[in-house]
Design a protein around this nucleic acid. Structure first.
Lengths: 163, 163
DNA sequence: GCTGTTATACTCGGATAGAAGATGTCCGAGTCTTAACGG
DNA sequence: CCGTTAAGACTCGGACATCTTCTATCCGAGTATAACAGC
């Protein structure tokens, strides 16, 4: 079971956007340059975030991406769903209804016990990620005292932001 | 994030093996016929279960697969790990160390907050699945009163088991 | 009739093709800026 | 000097290749069975 690499990129991109000055936008190319990842591919994932309503996009010369909501209202689960898809990892193909001893459809009023167990685990997974907001991630990063680094990031943002 | 289809097959195969009479083995072809899935492909996943020590294999005319441990000591997590691999779904590529404002390695004593959050969610997922034993799955199936079906399965097993 | 041997049938195990999804890239559609131009 | 307009540059958005992983299959290695010949 592997999660797409773009989820990591999108999460870091959202962290960066959370430090963006109000009223400005950051182009996908700038986000890619900041993280040193392929610009076109990151752009693809930014589109996914925009479709999900997590970021808003502005076209044109002074365009770019910005967060659509305050970081407190954005969870890692929403980011992962937007980029990697929200369908369950475990797919039940109703094996119990197949084969020589297969159960008839009318016998299957309750979901298969195996699928139920996996889906319960996925709910625990989702509940955990829903409880982690972007703001909490940012707080864990800036918590450690390193004013020089923080100032460098701020300067880089002001140099590359549009608007 | 998608889990391999073989996990479902392997889980159902283990459920079937748990009903196998003591001292007998069930060939992979018979398991595949019971579930109506491609025999050669299921055999591949049975090999994975054997490598993980969940089932034991016996070659030869009276060979086949059987559970290596009582069903109480086999969890869905072990089956999923054996078939789908046990590496974490989220892969941290240390993006924070890349790019113009990248952190230096000596600054990264603590794991990245994003990776830590995802891995914590995966731990919740694993803890949930580790708590579901094969015996519990079997109990949830046989709990519903359907003696006829149970007898049919039993008869099919005795007809197809070796040993 | 009993025993040792050999042939056989049946099983698992790993090496080998094909398909699907993830990864990576490109060019067109749309929009804001900016500068030139006319009033 | 100011308003209008048109060109230009920059951005996102979706369509197009490439590549790894998952899916599916086949044939060889190994073993217990069973037949068979010899004693």
């Amino acid at each position: 079971m592997r999660m797409g690499e773009g989820v990591e990129w999108a999460a870091h991109a959202c962290v960066l956007l959370s430090a963006l000055p109000d009223g400005t936008g950051l182009p996908a190319a700038a986000i890619a340059a900041y993280h040193d990842v392929p610009p076109a591919y990151l752009a693809k994932h930014m589109q996914a975030l925009a479709r999900a309503g997590i970021v808003t996009s502005a076209r044109g010369a002074a365009g770019g991406y910005r967060l659509a909501r305050p970081p407190q209202e954005i969870s890692l689960m929403q980011i992962a769903d937007a980029v990697d898809g929200s369908e369950p990892a475990f797919r039940c193909t109703e094996i119990r209804q197949r084969g020589p001893c297969g159960a008839k459809p009318e016998e299957c009023t309750k979901t298969c016990g195996i699928a139920a167990a996996f889906w319960a685990a996925e709910r625990a997974y989702r509940r955990q990620l829903e409880g982690v907001s972007l703001a909490a991630i940012v707080a864990s990063l800036t918590g450690r005292p390193d004013p020089g680094k923080f100032a460098r990031v701020k300067a880089w943002l002001e140099q590359n932001a549009n608007g």
